[in-house]
Design a binder for these strands. Structure first.
Lengths: 333, 333
DNA sequence: CGGAATAATACAAACGTTTGTACAACGATC
DNA sequence: GATCGTTGTACAAACGTTTGTATTATTCCG
């Protein structure tokens, strides 16, 4: 591998001059810079990033920590972040936590020891607060949180407007004439799910409908639990459900079919996340779309800008057949 | 940050002794090693990986290059690879090519300049051969290719049994009574697609059916091109399609519906990749499942083992409604 | 033309680790 | 007690870059 010293020797200058020339310092003469660049190209020089990082005390690597990389949502966030970071000259180091606290701490350590320029993360379900994050990263490494956020931590945050989204989804069901609307609510230690539940409640209140807590089904995010909760909801006389997840909504649809209910005539449903299958099934499923790619972009941009605020990425209600007794429509919140 | 020199000073030994103690060299006395380890723990020492990498000339980072990270297949491969590499003490640096040759070269350069311990990659459609890969990586950085493979390159390879898979898928269509079976074949500069096409052809031959080259539709991997090719296939009198991709298969289904054909009664289809939506749509779509997580695991293991061979990860034909005029069945190849 | 100001380059010390070689201490052997 | 091998440490030179300071070359002005 050719080094700046080789170039320096070939040109009869010192390595420092070569270094400055290549990084565009105003302290080298235009003529010298051109000569250096030419020689560097000729000799096939490429900067040793590791040495550069060691000297500078930081790298051009941005760490991203997610619970599971192969979940659709997170891989899209990563894709969005990467699209911005790559253009800005960074590369991306990925760590998974598998929802475990210990793995999260380990990932944070790994990233810090690699002297990453920053960390974008969505914390594990297993983490109750962000103390460990602060402990490991200190105040030297900028942090951007997305989706799952500890609001007490410093640094930028990127979230969805879960309250407004769930509000719009529920309101939509009301407008379609459903009157006894339940919800599959997810886990309450996640602020996102909690906000969706509140949005659902508020929409009912604002519509003059009673908020019946027996129609709220907690901890339902997979198909099986959605199915069971769906059966209960039907027995309780529900005619519609807003589900905080798509897979649980799918389970509820199964339950409704099994009970001989037609969708959307007898039973309406809106899911959340806009998973690929929702648009492709029959009848197609209405869903409150997250925008993970955009969240990734925003997180990356927040890191680049070094700003501290909270960015809210709007959700979009995709109205499809499963909730439309009236006409089809598409709402942006 | 505390360094080995700090520890050395605190104990009255030299940094080299500390370094050797921490890396378990037999050249330090057991007693000294314990003292060093204790002091390191007390002072909260963590090895500066960047400095270590510079000195050693390589890092504990493994680069993974994929066309697009948020494609289900690739994010699962990454997940599989990461599960193995993480356990072995490596971390994973991700690069996307967006199917572009130039981006692939840039990614390779980035990884080499970061002195990665190895590269796992699936090349871009835009790359016709692997010369650039060899040029950039040289023979110092081990390479493992997966899925899309240049067989002329050295290093380990992990592939699916595309020929056998496509053969089984096509044979299945024959067994279901379809007689004029076309194919959506993908890009022929990818050996995987080429092998699938051969499997399709061989299955027809072995079934005593004519191989009509006008029923082979090249370069169709997305929904739109699948739709167009689907229309052509229907006009040409096809009653079934084996598609080398799920999205193109979806497009073909649209085309069939538009032409008033019932699925599977009038028109059968089998896709490839077993995307999540295939099982959830109505009618559910048969698909030739890849095993991306396992491929990632195998690729990582091949890197760790430093072996050169080719690993074949079997595909599995998921038989669902879209191809079943007779009975439902599930085939393992 | 002298001297100050400025421009351009050279010098050298870092960054924190690893590792080959040298060295000291010690016990064993003859 | 001199010689030798062994064991444990110290010494010092890397790895390739960046960057503060010193030095030399150039320009400009009175």
């Amino acid at each position: 591998m050719v080094t700046i010293s080789d170039i320096a020797a070939a040109l009869g200058v010192t390595p420092s001059t070569v270094s400055r020339a290549l990084s565009g310092s105003p302290r080298v003469k235009e003529e010298t810079r051109l000569a250096v660049e030419k020689m560097a190209a000729e000799m096939g020089y490429e900067r040793n990033i590791v040495a550069s990082n060691l000297r500078k005390g930081r790298s051009d690597i941005v760490g991203i920590i997610v619970p599971r990389i192969h979940r659709n949502f997170f891989s899209n966030v990563i894709g969005g972040a990467e699209s911005i970071l790559e253009a800005a000259g960074y590369c991306v180091l990925i760590c998974q936590t598998h929802e475990r606290f210990e793995a999260e701490v380990k990932a944070l350590r790994t990233l810090r020891n690699n002297q990453v320029a920053g960390v974008l993360m969505s914390h594990a379900i297993g983490s109750d607060n962000g103390k460990h994050i602060l402990d490991v990263l200190g105040d030297r490494i900028p942090l951007v949180q997305f989706d799952r956020v500890f609001s007490e931590l410093p640094g930028a945050k990127v979230v969805s407007n879960n309250f407004e989204g769930a509000y719009a989804a529920t309101k939509h069901l009301v407008e379609q004439g459903y009157r006894r609307i339940g919800t599959l609510a997810g886990y309450m230690n996640s602020e996102a799910y909690a906000a969706r539940l509140e949005g659902y409640r508020q929409a009912l209140r604002d519509s003059g409908l009673p908020v019946d807590e027996s129609l709220v089904h907690y901890d339902t995010i997979v198909r099986e639990t959605g199915y069971e909760a769906g059966l209960k909801a039907i027995e309780a006389g529900c005619d519609a459900l807003y589900s905080a997840g798509d897979f649980s909504a799918l389970g509820a649809i199964e339950a409704a079919r099994e009970r001989g209910l037609r969708i959307p005539e007898d039973f309406g449903i809106v899911g959340t996340a806009n998973e690929a299958f929702t648009a492709l099934m029959t009848p197609s499923m209405s869903s409150l779309a997250l925008n993970p790619f955009e969240m990734g972009r925003q997180a990356a941009q927040a890191f680049l800008a070094g700003e501290e605020g909270t960015v809210v990425v709007p959700m979009e209600l995709k109205v499809r057949e499963s909730s439309c007794r009236n006409k089809l429509q598409n709402l942006s919140i």
